[in-house]
Design a protein around this nucleic acid. Sequence first.
DNA 1: CGTGAGTTTGACCAGATGGTCAAATCAAGA
DNA 2: TCTTGATTTGACCATCTGGTCAAACTCACG
Lengths: 202, 202
Amino acid sequence: MPKDRAPTRIQQKNRAAILDAALNVFSAHGYRGATVDQIATEAGLSKPNLLYYFPSKEAIHTALLTGLLEVWLAPLHELDENGEPLEEILSYVRRKLEMSRDLPRESRLFANELVQGAPRIHDALSSDLKKLVDEKTAILTRWMDQGKIARLHPYHLIFSIWALTQHYADFDVQVRAILGDEDPFEGAETFVDTLYRKLLTP
Amino acid sequence: MPKDRAPTRIQQKNRAAILDAALNVFSAHGYRGATVDQIATEAGLSKPNLLYYFPSKEAIHTALLTGLLEVWLAPLHELDENGEPLEEILSYVRRKLEMSRDLPRESRLFANELVQGAPRIHDALSSDLKKLVDEKTAILTRWMDQGKIARLHPYHLIFSIWALTQHYADFDVQVRAILGDEDPFEGAETFVDTLYRKLLTP
DNA sequence: CGTGAGTTTGACCAGATGGTCAAATCAAGA
DNA sequence: TCTTGATTTGACCATCTGGTCAAACTCACG
């Protein structure tokens, strides 16, 4: 394993290639379904070479998840108390939907992990995620108190946004099996827009 | 393997035990993450004994999925053109939510399969499921034409129901990490009820 | 009972898989 | 160029896993 000095050019390139390959493989097959060989091949390395950069399969998975959790929660971070309530929420929804369209692998990585009980990120859920959600639901509640949006259960409001937007990435095959050639995201965008406008209008 | 006569008492009992154990294991770990030994132990059988009843791991999985697809689609089947539109849709939503609460293993079984690209039920999706959905969206469209419910993209309306209801079973850990002790389904029920009332009112 | 079909199991196998290691190769600074 | 640390690899290992098989056991029924 490389000493912990400043990473060399090669180290940067290879670690990035490994994480990208791992994202492909883990998101498509889940943790257990992914093989180190597959990741190595996809990253253009031999298996021992890959294990020179990461000590184990699990280490790759953990590095991926923790690295992406930040990306994953960014849209919610941006929800701004000082903005116009309805517009703030709608653009959060829009950002989440864009992530489903542009980063479906990331969405499925988390979906795989969550649907199997989140054995490897359970802690992050009940600390980081919970904290962020509590912070933002407080804002939503204040908006409701001020009569700026309809009164709803704030947690379930957040859940609904996650469910509606991530559905298009996570269950992509199903969506496409039903829609055929139609682009899922065009319809989805106007649908969720209408939905939250109607729902949130007091 | 047993001859194809009428199944004996033992055969019935063991096949049922195997399928129930398999539902536990597959829904919790996905196809690849499940092991035959685990299923056998959970069913109270030895591995060779299990393989006396089902020829392979995949056969168990297929038997499960095909057997449960029917159960899974039943609520949508019940959507009745002759009923009162809003109430019909609301009770469909309610039935789906009840399934998430009462049959979370089934929900996660399909979620696992779908999120990984549905390699084993792709056909059923684009034939049976597609057919059923087309049939029911036609009803929805007619209701919209008659001005009985708001005009929306019917496919995305169905997707939204699936997403909102199954979310509580599939991502149960996440939901509970955020809600703490609060019962997810109580809040969910009133939330989705409000949501679809507002959304569907023309 | 006895007998034949139905049921169960211990021992075993082949392939897949995560991971190790010593040796070989490469790259950059002195 | 030479040296030293970084990088790469072929060979190898232990374990897990799906699946097989022949032998043993059990049960219903004549």
